[in-house]
Design a binder for these strands. Structure first.
Length: 833
RNA sequence: GCGAAAGUGGCGGAACUGGCAGACGCGCCGGACUUAGGAUCCGGUGGGGCAACCCAUGAGGGUUCGAAUCCCUCCUUUCGCACCA
């Protein structure tokens, strides 16, 4: 490696970074002037050091931001810190450093890494979630939600991470494991704060169709996560009735009302309230209690990942099928979830795999009521559940209908008679936001013996998180801070206790991008008109890991904020780009695997431009990128070659003039160079703007350089305007990818000011057109020759010339020409027989 | 199990709506300059064949003048969900 260039690049990168700083080059005005572009990358957790995944993420965003500046947009490109969360607390427990100190150090460190990489952030808008001037607005939003019954407290079974000693939301459990520490998640019954995201389930689902700028993959994941399903709730009247006058009917949820005549029993979740109504002396009661105890024990240690063996007990309760009049036993079983539907189902073993499995285990009857069209009902027991739609049999007056008609008719009859109604269910559950940890936003409520839950008045915000307390990791640290906990009730002035749960940090990141529009506001979370001026986010870049976490929470917030009248749209993100991971040796870089590459090390050895260039070049943005040091060197060599070509010519070219519109048109070599220049502009512009491809533009830049190298190999005038045009264009086109050398090259070639505000070059249509084109000649679809013709040539002329081609003629010999297909200027296919 | 995406040289990857498969980079081979080169520059590089030509985009079939691209079946890999009634 050539040390001279390394030092040169290092110096020029520092020089231009200082220049940008001094010019406040990336500060966005309060409101956009003219067309705007809000370019955002997901804000990082300040773990201490950047990793390559960050660099890739930000290099992508930065390329687009710089491109859009040059395209004449006012760009908002901010950066901040998702700075509440467990690692700070764990570090404090381990090393005794207070979380605030640890966090601030990490922020300082990572910010300087980002600066050294030369990213174009408007640092004047920097935010950090752990600062009171930020999290007071978390509290403010929470209070608004509380007022609207969007935040509520409830005791229920929740996900519990033993290692993190806290509750997790459903979205934060991945395959039964904690999203952050990967330990197995158990369940606990706790009183918790929830956000009523389910109120927006319908809208969150429906609007996915309109998010055309989002990857299909993400929309699908969200759709599955929300899990909309249309079905019916049917009431099965309780039998043996003396016992239960209060519970008139057991309500079950089904999507297959058409199979109801095949129901041979019902099943309720172990915690279903109907079971509490069993009289103490009932033998079913004893069975249920024993079963509940067994399940409760399991819940705590539950592995979660693989479905458990189905288990259940006969509760002794009996219900009547409202359609057939048949009496059915009610079981309690572990495969029915209280959280979904009504917590009770009708079991149709012939047409549902789970019911079938359970029926087989406990020797319960299986009755076929749907057959495939054209098939007769078989008398023998089916070997497996037939879950498809078909034609109804053994279904009373519905027999003979197809499944869809059966559902429709049964629903109508059931509705008329009052025991059935159609309904829509969602898999999505309310978002549990309570965390039993210290380093987060205090939930702003006070528990008063007399008044119950009392919100902290707005004038008392922020509820400050106390600092300087000893963290042990045992229990909730805040509960031990008397000065924090012991307060007077704002309503009755009696003694109260402050809530000690803190907020899930996903609350912090659900609205941060609005705050960037007005980061200093101390009267409101933001000024609505400023947000209106910048929103929606034009490009949001981040990892796919957030598909069903952050990216669903922030959509929910947008809808809440819209309903609060603070923002106009319930969808904050226009185009979403989920970049792939950075791998080494085929797996994601991680400290535990020891396959990390340190960004600082890369910057020291190759510079920021090379590091960025490689992360953009090595793979398309949305795909995983395999780190390859030799590939990095290739990018370094490319920049070296750029410099080596222009450095000795700089002085002469600086004073050369730029070419006139037609200059060089009559000289093939110079015309070739100009064509390449304009074709490169055209390609790169389309690739960034229309396709968000950043690897192919880098390839195009390399091609342009190859052409330039060929051009200067032959003697040329040192001050050739065509060469100057090529160099200047290269400087402009490099700005999104290797911004420092781009600036240096621009100034070397006598460009005034900084590249960053030069208009993005526009390809001259004249130079995109070729006067003479090469047409591929195929015979029966196989390439047999090529002819050069004027680009205006007509098919007949091309054909004549093609026939004259020796090879083509050989393939036409003795055959009859049946048909010709001509794509002007590109291809001529001769179909012969 | 259900759902989705993707399979192209030795490797990362190009090929926008069906139209020259392999751009660009890495690696490799050869050469030049050199005391030397792991620097730089030049040339070559999917496979077979002296060549014409043939074969080749996971496998097999289909549609088409023409398929990496569209359709069907299968295989593999990756990801998401995982008892959601």
């Amino acid at each position: 490696m050539n040390g001279d260039y390394r030092d040169l690049f290092d110096a020029l990168e520092l020089k231009w970074q200082a220049h940008w700083n001094q010019e406040r080059a990336w500060a966005a005005p309060e409101r956009p002037e003219g067309p705007k572009f809000y370019c955002l990358e997901m804000l990082p957790y300040p773990s201490g050091r950047l990793h390559m995944g960050h660099v890739r993420n930000y290099a992508i965003g930065d390329a687009v931001a710089r491109f859009q500046w040059m395209r004449g947009r006012t760009v908002l490109h901010p950066m901040g810190w998702d700075s509440f969360g467990l690692p700070a607390e764990n570090a404090a427990i381990k090393h005794g450093t207070p979380p605030a100190v640890w966090t601030n150090q990490n922020i300082a460190n990572m910010a300087s890494q980002l600066r050294r990489l030369g990213f174009s952030y408007d640092w004047s808008r920097e935010i950090a979630a752990h600062r009171p001037e930020y999290y007071r607005w978390n509290q403010w939003f929470f209070l608004r939600m509380l007022e609207r019954d969007l935040a509520y407290r409830s005791r229920r079974s929740v996900n519990w991470c033993e290692s993190c000693q806290t509750v997790l939301a459903n979205e934060q459990v991945e395959q039964g494991r904690c999203w952050r520490c990967e330990s197995l998640v158990g369940r606990r019954e706790l009183e918790q704060w929830f956000l009523r995201i389910t109120r927006y389930a319908e809208e969150l689902d429906a609007e996915l169709d309109r998010l055309t700028g989002w990857p299909e993959r993400v929309r699908l994941m969200q759709r599955n996560w929300i899990g909309r399903s249309e079905g019916a709730v049917a009431g099965f009247p309780m039998q043996g009735a003396a016992a239960h006058p209060a519970a008139a009917a057991l309500e079950i949820y089904t999507t297959r009302l058409d199979t109801i005549h095949g129901a041979t029993f019902c099943v309720v979740a172990p915690s279903h309230p109907i079971l509490d109504r069993l009289p103490p002396e009932d033998p079913g009661r004893a069975r249920v209690e024993a079963f509940r105890r067994r399940m409760a024990q399991k819940d705590v240690t539950r592995a979660g990942a693989e479905p458990e063996e189905k288990e259940g007990v006969d509760t002794g309760l009996r219900v009547r099928n409202p359609y057939s009049g048949e009496t059915l036993p009610v079981f309690a079983a572990n495969f029915v979830l209280m959280e979904y539907g009504t917590g009770a189902i009708m079991a149709v073993p012939a047409h549902d795999e789970r019911d079938f499995e359970f029926a087989r285990k406990y020797g319960l009857p299986v009755r076929t009521v749907v057959v495939r069209r054209g098939q007769a009902a078989s008398a023998s027991a089916p070997p497996a559940a037939m879950t498809e739609d078909g034609v109804l049999v053994e279904s009373g007056r519905y027999s003979g209908m197809d499944s869809a008609a059966g559902r429709r008719e049964m629903l109508r009859d059931g509705e008329r008679q009052g025991f059935c109604r159609s309904t829509v269910q969602y898999r999505l559950l309310d978002w549990g936001i309570s965390r039993q940890r210290y380093w987060g936003t205090p939930i702003p409520v006070i528990h008063c013996e007399r008044c119950g839950v009392v919100p902290v008045p707005d004038r008392d915000l922020p509820v400050l998180l106390p600092e300087n307390l000893a963290l042990t990791g045992e229990g909730s640290a805040l509960q031990r801070v008397a000065a924090f906990v012991e307060v007077t009730c704002p309503r009755c002035q009696g003694p109260g206790r402050r809530e000690t749960d803190t907020m899930d940090t996903f609350f912090d990141s659900s609205w941060y991008f609005y705050r960037y529009c007005d980061p200093g506001n101390d009267r409101a979370p933001f000024d609505a008109s400023k947000v209106a001026a910048w929103f929606p986010i034009d490009l949001y870049v981040g990892g796919i890991t957030h598909a069903t976490m952050h990216l669903i929470y922030c959509r929910f917030f947008a809808k809440v904020l819209r309903d609060l009248g603070l923002v106009a749209s319930g969808e904050p993100v226009g185009t979403l780009l989920c970049q792939g991971m950075v791998l080494k040796g085929g797996t994601a870089m991680s400290k535990s695997k020891g396959n990390t590459v340190d960004p600082d090390e890369m910057v020291r050895r190759y510079g920021a431009d090379t590091t960025r260039l490689f992360t953009l070049f090595a793979a398309p943005p949305e795909k995983d990128l395999e780190w390859n040091e030799q590939g990095v060197e290739g990018c370094f060599r490319f920049l070296e070659k750029v410099w080596r070509l222009f450095a000795p010519r700089g002085e002469v070219l600086a004073s050369a003039s730029l070419p006139g519109p037609d200059e060089g048109a009559d000289q093939p070599r110079r015309a070739g160079l100009r064509r390449k220049v304009h074709q490169t502009i055209d390609r790169i512009t389309i690739d960034i703007d229309k396709r968000l491809h950043l690897n192919t533009p880098v390839a195009a830049l390399m091609e342009l350089l190859n052409t330039l190298q060929d051009f200067v190999r032959e003697p040329a005038h040192g001050d050739d305007p065509c060469l100057k045009e090529a160099g200047r264009t290269l400087a402009l086109l490099l700005q999104p990818f290797a911004p420092h050398i781009s600036e240096e090259l621009w100034s070397l070639l006598g460009g005034a000011g900084s590249v960053r505000r030069q208009p993005w070059p526009v390809a001259d249509a004249r130079w995109l057109r070729e006067d003479e084109v090469e047409v591929v000649v195929q015979v029966n679809g196989r390439v047999r020759g090529r002819v050069r013709v004027p680009s205006s040539a007509l098919e007949a002329e091309v054909l004549a010339q093609a026939r004259a081609d020796e090879r083509v003629a050989a393939h036409l010999e003795g055959r009859i020409l049946r048909k010709t297909i001509y794509l002007p200027g590109k291809l001529l296919n001769l179909v012969v027989q």
